[in-house]
Simulated assay, not measured.
Amino acid sequence: MAPQPHPAAPPAADVFAVAPPLFSAGASAPSSMTPPSPPVPSPMPAPPAMSPPPVMPASPPAPAAVPTANHPAPPKKPPTPGSPPATSSASSSVPRAKLVIQRGGTVGKEFLLTETESNIGRWDADGGIFPDVDLDQDDPEAKVSRRHARIVCQDGQYVLEDLGSTNGTFVNRGRRLLPGNRHPLNDGDEIIVGKTFLKFHYIR
Rank of each mutant, 00 (worst) to 15 (best):
K77G: 08
S118M: 08
P30E: 00
S83K: 01
T68R: 08
G104R: 02
N70L: 14
D138I: 06
K76N: 04
T87G: 08
S42A: 12
S93L: 01
P20I: 04
V193K: 03
A12S: 15
P39K: 05
K76L: 09
S37R: 12
P67H: 03
S59N: 10
S51K: 06
I192P: 05
G26M: 10
G82E: 00
V107Y: 03
A17P: 05
A62W: 02
H201Y: 09
A62S: 07
I192Q: 15
P75Q: 11
S93F: 01
H6P: 15
A25T: 02
V171W: 01
S118A: 12
N172A: 04
M1C: 08
A73W: 08
A12E: 15
R122Q: 06
P35K: 00
G194W: 03
D134C: 03
I120K: 02
L177F: 03
I129S: 00
I101N: 03
G180Y: 02
I192R: 15
L178Y: 08
L178A: 11
D14S: 10
K143P: 02
T34D: 00
P11N: 09
R122W: 06
A13S: 10
D124N: 14
P10I: 13
V18I: 15
D14V: 02
Y158M: 06
S92H: 04
P78F: 02
V18E: 13
S165Y: 05
R147I: 12
R176Y: 06
R147S: 13
S59K: 12
P39T: 02
G174Y: 04
P57C: 10
I191N: 09
G104S: 04
F197T: 07
V55Q: 07
Q4K: 11
P79A: 04
P10Y: 07
V40T: 06
K195Q: 14
I101Q: 01
A58H: 11
D134P: 00
P79D: 06
V55L: 03
P60G: 07
G156E: 00
A27Q: 12
R147W: 08
V55S: 07
L22F: 09
P72V: 10
S24R: 04
L112N: 14
S91G: 06
A17G: 15
T116Y: 05
G194P: 06
L112E: 14
K199G: 06
A17Y: 12
A9D: 13
A58C: 07
V66K: 11
T196Y: 01
V66Q: 13
T116E: 10
H201V: 09
P43L: 07
V15K: 14
P84T: 03
D187R: 03
D14F: 05
P47H: 01
L113K: 05
Q154K: 10
L178G: 09
A65P: 08
S92D: 00
S51H: 08
A12W: 05
A90P: 08
Y202C: 00
G164V: 12
I101H: 05
G108K: 01
P57E: 04
N172M: 10
S83D: 11
R146D: 07
P11I: 14
P85R: 01
D187Y: 00
